[in-house]
Write a protein that binds this DNA or RNA. Structure first.
Lengths: 198, 198
DNA sequence: ATTTTAGTATACAGATCTGTATCCTACATG
DNA sequence: CATGTAGGATACAGATCTGTATACTAAAAT
């Protein structure tokens, strides 16, 4: 058997280091040598695990994809219990993310900004990530009984993206609060208002 | 007199070429040699007009800043006459932008994605651009008599950024339509409803 | 008319980038 | 023990990057 669950394998060390450096400095600006230095692994080992830098980039994005979505959804589900409050909790989770010292925006947005060619593996990984985030939101919209869950989910997703970019570019972590306020209005508009009918 | 209004000066040619290439391929991925080739100007002339690549980058961003905002605002003001309809027209302008074949997202968002170091000239140019876009929106919100124009402007700005990023990453030009729908709800919520009181 | 200036063309210096090759060590398993 | 293998250290090949230098040209200003 190769290695089933040995402590941080060289491969994982490389991916984790790559994620950190790509997030911080961008993909093109991060050289293989820099990754090698920071990971404490030699270039030979890197090229034994990945055929090229591009393959390491893809592995790093895919790894971060799963890691981020899992952590994000877990936090949202911990912060609130009902679908509607969870939709709002999304923006509370965002705010803590934005306030971290090592917040460099969304890795996938930044990656696409550096790679405009469509229909590449990189672009698919990035758009898939965004699609799955939208589906997470859609699921909550359906469960809360929104009149038009697809519409609401797409609108909330826009607020989410807008908050990320604004927190990053304009250095306004409170973009999350603004997004939450707008989200509350949109959610309320889509609620069934059963309490009003009694 | 140096040159007051000579036809496209070499400097302008370089800046225009740089804007195009930076937008298409990113800043780090665009080499000086590539800019030289596409602009039909030699490297010596480039370095006679700009001390370094960084200075050319800044000049390109500043040029595009003025160019884009001017064109954007003019389009919005042409499409509608009243403040409220102009706020909605913003998203119609966005849609035509997203549908262009050479749409590569927002140059400033992409630039920040490649340059994380805060308090640099590049970061100031980018955050200033976003600030001025928000002020344009705020002006319209004030003129339309919104109850809380600052709140509304910030919320609409988030929808704008979210639409740009979504159109780019997920290749959904109709993100503009979704944003417009959400904007209409937020705007209506902030309207004075004077018509209802008659 | 002559001299300065803006620009072309091109070569080059030095750094950095991706990817490969060489040589050596530690260790795990047969 | 013996041997294959994962990995460390390092050098290197070839491309590309930023920025400078050299030599020539055309036009503009004095």
């Amino acid at each position: 058997m190769k290695q089933k669950s040995a402590r941080p394998s060289k491969r994982e060390q490389l991916i984790q280091t790559a994620v950190t450096l790509f997030a911080q400095n961008g993909i093109h600006a991060t050289g293989i040598d820099t990754i090698v230095e920071h990971s404490g692994v030699t270039k030979k080992t890197l090229y034994a695990n990945f055929r090229s830098k591009e393959e390491l980039v893809l592995a790093a994005l895919r790894h971060y994809d799963g890691q981020f979505r899992n952590s994000f959804m877990r936090q949202v589900e911990t912060k609130a219990r009902t679908p509607k409050t969870r939709l709002l909790a999304i923006f509370d989770v965002l705010e803590t993310w934005f306030s971290q010292q090592n917040f460099y925006g969304c890795l996938f947005i930044n990656a696409v900004g550096e790679h405009s060619t469509p229909d590449t593996s990189l672009r698919y990984v990035c758009s898939d990530f965004k699609r799955m985030m939208r589906e997470f939101i859609l699921d909550l919209c359906i469960k809360m009984g929104a009149r038009n869950p697809h519409h609401l989910a797409e609108e909330l997703a826009l607020l989410l993206e807008g908050a990320i970019v604004t927190a990053q570019v304009s250095q306004k972590p409170d973009a999350a609060k603004i997004a939450k306020r707008a989200a509350a209005v949109l959610i309320e508009k889509q609620s069934s208002h059963e309490t009003l009918r009694t």
